[in-house]
Design a protein around this nucleic acid. Sequence first.
DNA 1: TTTTGCCTGTTATTTGCTTAACAATGTGCT
DNA 2: AGCACATTGTTAAGCAAATAACAGGCAAAA
Lengths: 218, 218
Amino acid sequence: MKIKNYYKNLPHKTIERLSQYRRALMICLDNGKTHIFSHEIANIQHITSVQVRRDLMLIGYSGTLRKGYNIQDLIEVISHIIDDEEGIKVAVVGMGNLGRALMKYVRGKRHKLEVVAGFDTNEEKIGKEYKGVTCYSIDDLEKVIDKLNIKLAILTVPAKYSTETAEKLVDAGIKGILNYTPKPIRVPEDVYLEEYDMITTLEKVAFYIKMHQEEEGE
Amino acid sequence: MKIKNYYKNLPHKTIERLSQYRRALMICLDNGKTHIFSHEIANIQHITSVQVRRDLMLIGYSGTLRKGYNIQDLIEVISHIIDDEEGIKVAVVGMGNLGRALMKYVRGKRHKLEVVAGFDTNEEKIGKEYKGVTCYSIDDLEKVIDKLNIKLAILTVPAKYSTETAEKLVDAGIKGILNYTPKPIRVPEDVYLEEYDMITTLEKVAFYIKMHQEEEGE
DNA sequence: TTTTGCCTGTTATTTGCTTAACAATGTGCT
DNA sequence: AGCACATTGTTAAGCAAATAACAGGCAAAA
Ligand SMILES: NC(=O)c1ccc[n+]([C@@H]2O[C@H](COP(=O)([O-])OP(=O)(O)OC[C@H]3O[C@@H](n4cnc5c(N)ncnc54)[C@H](O)[C@@H]3O)[C@@H](O)[C@H]2O)c1
Ligand SMILES: NC(=O)c1ccc[n+]([C@@H]2O[C@H](COP(=O)([O-])OP(=O)(O)OC[C@H]3O[C@@H](n4cnc5c(N)ncnc54)[C@H](O)[C@@H]3O)[C@@H](O)[C@H]2O)c1
């Protein structure tokens, strides 16, 4: 198959935007719209129409001249690219404040991304349900991941346990990790890793506020 | 002053890494270390030593040959660059699940970034304290922001209120917004905006899991 | 029918950042 | 003392992504 090789070369940023386009498109569809211009999508996302067209070119989707893109079709094309047919099962590892907020948030949001388990070490949480999802003991990680066919883990344990928990996840056969702890983790090549550090982002915003202040006070 | 012009040209990514270096360095300092090599910092952050040295070159900090960088000094230099001397006051706008988790998390983490207020529309939340921080009515936004000298807002309201709330924040004189809602917002040039969309990130991880699966099943 | 203008799709250029290459230098070892 | 080499600091090359430039074509207006 060459199609998948082709998608493989899509820029990471394009993948991100496709996800965003799709959500915007679904809202438009709900509002009864059937077609949309590149500059309309661009407006919603606050980017340029060139970028939208370029992204759509990369995935090989063509619109109609002077009519724009067929929303329904485009949603399907994007879904075919980014969604797994059978869906990807997700686990939240560390059912603390952030983990629970995320679980509640993700539940039912995207039907191809289903949160099917939580994990924790706290005895009081183990065995309980949260938003209809069972919280398992971290000791049963491998067993549960295997049984429920979980591929993706959202990591929200305290930072000092990041490394060891990541190792457990890898050993249990997880294929992708979204790490929300501020401690960077390391995974083998065949596991996809995405990290997000909130404090860094906050400090960055603060830096640019400061920068701008100093500029003004010149 | 040319120093600030100089910092202004630091790559965004370098700013992010400086924040991360500093946190790693503070842990090292606590452990009694006084000096550190570029490759040690690199190991902690899972990047290359070249990148670390390049970043430090950009901020004009010099280490000692065969001895590495003085941790205490480096922390101070980084702090001088990224911290505002007087500190930046932060508000959490939308005291829901995410907002409360964030408030609890950020409180006391960085003493130059202080969360001093929450805002909500829910009558039951208004006037209450959470982790020692008062939740105000969104109607008092301008008044409170002015009085408490709040510069940075973390936006965690429901997506459908993103746009109008962002406008209120701008009107109230906020200087930087960290938008955690999935709906992009627009701000004037003099307000710094950083957006993070969780669902996009999740879908991206899922995409690369799928990609890798298909590659294997070739 | 011709022309104007709008919108798509592609190729070229520029920009920002990372990685590689290497020059410089002082420390410890012999 | 002199040599080997670990480590820093700088310059150059390479990459990925964004932006700009423009070619193409149809629909509606004239
Ligand atoms: N709360 C936030 O808004 C926020 C924001 C950004 C990042 N983070 C990061 O997310 C992580 C969690 O934050 P939180 O505020 O939810 O903390 P929390 O203390 O509320 O939650 C941590 C949870 O992990 C569980 N846990 C502890 N050790 C574990 C282990 N070895 N295996 C599995 N579970 C374990 C705890 O029982 C608890 O339920 C931290 O690393 C934090 O730095 C939090
Ligand atoms: N929960 C998560 O883990 C998560 C993750 C990523 C993004 N988000 C986004 O963050 C936002 C909040 O998510 P949540 O789960 O905390 O939702 P939530 O419903 O728990 O919280 C929303 C809060 O905002 C308040 N609110 C409503 N309208 C308001 C207004 N006009 N001004 C001020 N406050 C108002 C509500 O009273 C409520 O307290 C949403 O946009 C969501 O998409 C949430």
